[in-house]
Design a binder for these strands. Structure first.
Length: 453
DNA sequence: TGGAGAGTGTTGTCCGAGGT
DNA sequence: ACCTCGGACAACACTCTCCA
């Protein structure tokens, strides 16, 4: 990905005194909101727990090899979405060693040192590598780590950006946070509770331009993927897929939701689903919240759509008249013109001369019995008793006619009761438990069923 | 009055839109 | 990709009308 010149620039950057990545002690640049005592206490608390060490299997190079093998296998089966797999397949088979080499080149030397020290998750070793001031972050593209340290746990987020300085600035500006992401929700908690959080640049490079090769893009995505698995910032289910089984797991403390390799792929949209069975209370809370958001959005869309149709019906706006071909039990074919709203089909009598394109239908719901009620067999206790359905249209000769549509049948009464509920804005859940109603229910799998209460 | 034909009521299934 | 919903359509059961 980088030529020698770029690589030398990167090295120079790394060593420059103003980027804040030397092994400075916290005392040189304490965050205003946290005293040195607080930070030391936190670091002491998190210092070298047993799981910070790793064996050969857990060495980042071994993990990278595992990801490569795993990806090759998956691409053979088109597993990451057609677009992605098509793009990457050739590269991965032909240029695996080049890509791997470039990834290593882009990594910062101090991060490589950390890898070799085998104390990757030791927060007291990561902390000195932090960006101390936003302005000291390089403006180049890169991969970074955001560590959020609460009194009881450490959470990691791995990000990719075209400008490290801008991204870190954004992360430090609450007005730019997207409140739907787990990362920002936890960050909000951290800021509210005055926890420690800091950024570490893991790799930096020049962002490839739009015309750059797929190889560059694959390298960057692979790099982010690699770091996400090494620091275990992905959901447990994804880690199970992409991290060797023999590597000890940190316990559900990642803040990344989607696989970097499937960025932009539609599956990434529902990434929070991975937390369904999480034992981490914070992830569980996030999962519950996202599910409720999704349901609320769905309800809002349905209500908005339903409301629109309801208003049209109650104001007698133009209605669609559909013509169906039909066959009766004697086998003779005929057409029927039908007006439909919700689950009610009303047949326009064939004797009525109606130009379908001029039809308007008014659902005339009254507070008392309608003299022209549509459901002929409705009982005084049925809301359908108060509903008349008026068709206004032009005949083929241009004369305007009105006609009150009527329907026989006991089932039609129940269907129209449900229609009345809907016209009155009564929720479907209420309709389903009210006597003498009709509704269609579709299970998650299998066929829809019609029910009469 | 009963059979033929026409029309209506009811239901199952497919399919596309729009959502995550 | 998968899910859910509503619309479209047609099959078939049933009712009505008419006329021999």
């Amino acid at each position: 990905m980088e030529d020698d010149e770029q690589q030398s620039k990167r090295t120079k950057n790394t060593n420059s005194p103003d980027h804040g990545l030397q092994n400075e002690r916290p005392s040189e640049n304490p965050e205003p909101s946290k005293t040195l005592d607080t930070v030391s206490e936190l670091l002491d608390f998190h210092d070298s727990p047993p799981h910070t060490m790793y064996t050969e299997d857990g060495h980042p190079s071994a993990i990278l090899n595992y990801i490569h093998d795993r990806l090759q296998k998956q691409l053979e089966h088109n597993g990451i979405g057609e677009r992605t797999s098509g793009k990457y397949r050739k590269l991965l088979f032909s240029k695996r060693s080049d890509i791997s080499q470039n990834m290593h080149k882009a990594l910062r030397p101090e991060v490589m040192d950390l890898f070799e020290a085998k104390e990757l998750y030791d927060i007291s070793r990561l902390y000195p590598l932090r960006i101390c001031e936003e302005a000291s972050a390089p403006s180049r593209a890169g991969i970074y780590l955001h560590a959020i340290v609460s009194p009881t746990e450490v959470r990691f987020y791995i990000g990719q950006t075209s400008s490290l300085s801008n991204r870190i600035k954004n992360h430090n500006t609450p007005s730019r946070w997207n409140s739907e992401t787990l990362h920002y929700q936890v960050l909000q908690d951290a800021r509210d509770n005055n926890w420690l959080d800091f950024f570490v640049v893991l790799a930096d490079f020049d962002m490839p331009n739009d015309q750059s090769s797929n190889e560059d893009r694959l390298t960057i995505n692979m790099l982010e993927m690699w770091m996400s698995t090494v620091f275990q910032s992905l959901p447990p289910k994804l880690l199970d897929d992409w991290l060797p089984k023999t590597v000890a797991r940190r316990s559900c403390l990642g803040l990344n939701l989607s696989l970097p390799l499937s960025q932009g792929h539609i599956d990434a949209a529902k990434e929070w689903i991975h937390f369904k069975d999480s034992k981490d209370p914070m992830l569980q809370e996030y999962y519950t919240w996202r599910v409720s958001q999704a349901l609320r959005n769905l309800e809002a869309v349905r209500f908005w759509r339903g409301n629109l149709a309801r208003q049209r019906a109650l104001h007698g706006e133009p209605a669609i008249v559909t013509t169906y071909k039909n066959t009766n039990n004697k086998g003779s074919k005929f057409v029927r013109k039908v007006i439909k709203l919700r689950d009610i089909h009303l047949t326009i009598p064939p004797t009525l001369d109606v130009d379908p394109s001029t039809a308007k239908v008014l659902y005339d719901l009254r507070t008392d019995a309608h003299p022209q009620r549509a459901a002929k067999r409705s009982l005084p206790t049925d809301p359908a008793m108060c509903l008349g359905i008026k068709l206004t249209a032009k005949t083929s000769h241009g004369t305007v006619i009105t006609h009150w549509l009527r329907a026989d049948g006991d089932k039609n009464v129940l269907r129209m009761n449900s229609l009345c509920d809907w016209l009155m804005g009564i929720p479907k859940a209420t309709t389903e438990v009210t006597p003498r109603r009709f509704y269609i229910k579709k299970p998650a799998k299998g066929r829809a069923e019609q029910f009469y209460t």
